[in-house]
Simulated scan of single mutants.
Amino acid sequence: MTDLLSLTRSDLTPEELVRSAGEVLARFDHRTQDSGNVAWLVRTSSGEFFVKSAGEEMPPIGAPVPVLDRPSRVHLLRTAVEIARGIDHPALARLRTVIEVPSGPVLVYDRAPGELVGVPSARRDDPDSSYRRFASAPPAVRLSVFDQLLEAHRALEVAGWVACDLYDGCLMVDLATGHLTLIDLDTYRRGPSTNDMGRMFGSSRFMAPEEFTKGAPLDARTTVYTLGRLLRHFGTGLTEDLEDFCGGSARAAVVERATQRERTVRQGSVGELAAEWTAARDAGAAP
């Protein structure tokens, strides 16, 4: 058996490497995701790991959506490594090692507890889906997840990162403990930038208006909008009506400001959003 944690380099392909390490519990490729990456859940003698690679080649014709070429995917994986090694926060997935193989880096993470909140659109009406179960979880659980989400992004902001392609498919939530793990932050950008794509990567349910307009600024206010959309979507139990927000009217007002289409109305930074959120929470808890 290959000990993944002892390696920094291998001549094996990612598939061979993972299969030599233990029992493959799941494999994720173009049939289950649209990034073009290939990843595995593997059980080894050292524990269970989530292993991610850029894949050996482009997905076959007929993949659901166009994807980046492999060199671009390799570049984004190196962004994920930079984030993981530069920021120590309990809500960020724990990167254990990076193994260099001929096709690029293989990232080995601890398996995160819980379930992925994001599900295929066909399953969003299923009451047994992780998506619906999180949206209907007790307010204390959802609010704890929101606290962790904001604090993690305040740490990311301090380190200079702007969110891109942040959506419910980045949230692993353990409903038993309320613990959040953020995954797949590969496309985050270092510092403010300009929309160079037109329609950016991401889920339109959570994307800021500027993420659809080529040449528009992408900065902390963009991150604020997406965070606000996540809080609004799940905090209202999917109704989007802030009268239903699970955190009370003061925190609902913070979310309302964050999700304004006009950029200048939103909080100017994640730090400002988090501070308003905390002040509203504390005001609500006061006798």
Rank of each mutant, 00 (worst) to 15 (best):
V106F: 07
A26T: 14
R263G: 07
R43S: 14
S136D: 12
R205T: 13
G22L: 11
G235I: 09
R78F: 04
D147V: 01
A112F: 05
L5Q: 05
L175K: 09
T223L: 15
D11K: 11
A208W: 15
T259N: 02
R85S: 02
R266C: 03
G47A: 05
G202H: 03
V162H: 10
R94V: 14
V255L: 10
V38S: 04
V265H: 04
G248T: 02
P59F: 09
D241I: 04
R78T: 03
A176V: 06
F146N: 01
F245V: 01
T259A: 01
G237S: 02
C170L: 05
H89S: 09
R266H: 00
P105R: 02
G191V: 04
R189C: 08
R124H: 00
S6N: 05
G198N: 09
D69V: 14
A275C: 07
G191P: 06
T264I: 07
N37R: 09
G268S: 14
G178I: 12
M200A: 13
R94A: 13
H233L: 07
E243A: 15
G202W: 01
Q33K: 14
E240R: 12
S35F: 01
T2W: 12
H233K: 09
A39F: 01
I99M: 09
P217V: 12
T13Q: 13
V106A: 08
N37P: 01
S129R: 08
E262V: 14
R27F: 06
S204H: 09
D186H: 14
